[in-house]
Design a protein around this nucleic acid. Structure first.
Lengths: 191, 191
DNA sequence: TTTACTTTACCGACCAGACGGTATAGTAAT
DNA sequence: ATTACTATACCGTCTGGTCGGTAAAGTAAA
């Protein structure tokens, strides 16, 4: 099994995808080389050939995760003609809208990765750097910085809550919040 | 060590506190019976006597955590004369202000506990229930429900980000956000 | 008060399994 | 033959959990 996709993505990518699958289904704590080997159809030795340690594997996962988010966000930014509040709108959409970086599977992955951060403290730096870029962009997006930050925080809160499965916000409320937030990024109604 | 507080709290409480200490310092993944035994000065067998399984230990930690938050919030609510937006203000203060339930140590504990939720899925229910109560209270706090939810989400976002150490918000900005959010709960300026 | 028995709290040795990682041998293409 | 990659066997360590025992503190009948 798994041999049929011999050329569909390098072994490295397939391993990463399998690791994501495991993490999404059962959480980070269950991510082992043996399991990844089983899912990919490779042997444990094969996995270790590509990722010399578990740290390396998790690091690659985090990097791919951050990369996807940033790519998705940049794509959304490109489709917005209005410069005022453009980044903040793209941020809202990339976080909870219908970007490539969203959806159930991606959400749970985000939760697991965020949770993993407490076990792999050195990986925190990757996420941290992305966060600094994000906050800087939001602050100089043409909106009142405090207001823009509130919007960002609210989206972050919604994402986190959803992703950790702690909050079951009513879908209608969720939609209303997103719309209200987007509206506040429009030129007319920023304060 | 530890013997000096022979009467300061039951063994159970001391174990719980030691477990928190470990989790705060090195994360959930390093929480083991052996370590708890070492910190408390008890033996592993002694720990097992009070908490029959690791699940039981973590469950007790989560319960104590939620209890503290709710108690702190209720206390803050009592000191607010203005009913309009009272709960939401208390929520903001309990989350990031200077309640008993806040502070560096408590924050890191919150992170670890939230992270632990992905490893102990059945404990999620405890947090989930508290969250439902919270959201219901926020929605009928006399404010526009969407606005109130945004405030709550923004605080949740700030807390999560801080707690997971992913965001380094400028202290001045943080303060400004909190003040702005509090201002929005006041009768005059809800929309 | 002594004796017999029970309960509570705790200790420390041990085990079975899992996990990260190594060592090594093999294979298929270039 | 070299390179790139894969497979198998194995090791040491860690960890949750078990278990037999023990010391102290009641408790209650004789």
């Amino acid at each position: 099994m798994g041999i049929d996709m011999a050329k569909r993505g390098s072994a490295r990518e397939r391993i990463l995808t399998a690791a994501e699958e495991i993490v999404v289904k059962d959480g980070v704590s269950t991510l082992t080389f043996d399991k990844v080997a089983e899912v990919t159809g490779l042997s444990k030795g094969g996995i270790l050939y590509h990722f010399a340690s578990k740290d390396a594997l998790v690091r690659a996962m985090v990097e791919r995760f951050v990369y996807r988010f940033e790519t998705g966000l940049a794509g959304l930014e490109g489709t917005d003609a209005e410069p005022h509040g453009r980044y903040t709108r793209a941020y809202v959409a990339a976080t909870m809208g219908d970007a490539a970086s969203t959806g159930d599977q991606y959400d749970r992955l985000g939760a697991s990765i965020t949770a993993a951060l407490s076990n792999f403290p050195d990986l925190l730096e990757i996420v941290h750097q992305q966060n600094i870029r994000c906050q800087a962009a939001v602050e100089k997006d043409g909106l009142d910085p405090v207001e823009a930050t509130i919007i960002r925080l609210a989206m972050e809160g919604m994402w986190m809550a959803e992703v950790f499965n702690v909050m079951h916000l009513d879908p209608a409320m969720k939609q209303a919040v997103i719309e209200r937030l987007i509206a506040r990024t429009r030129p007319a109604s920023s304060p």
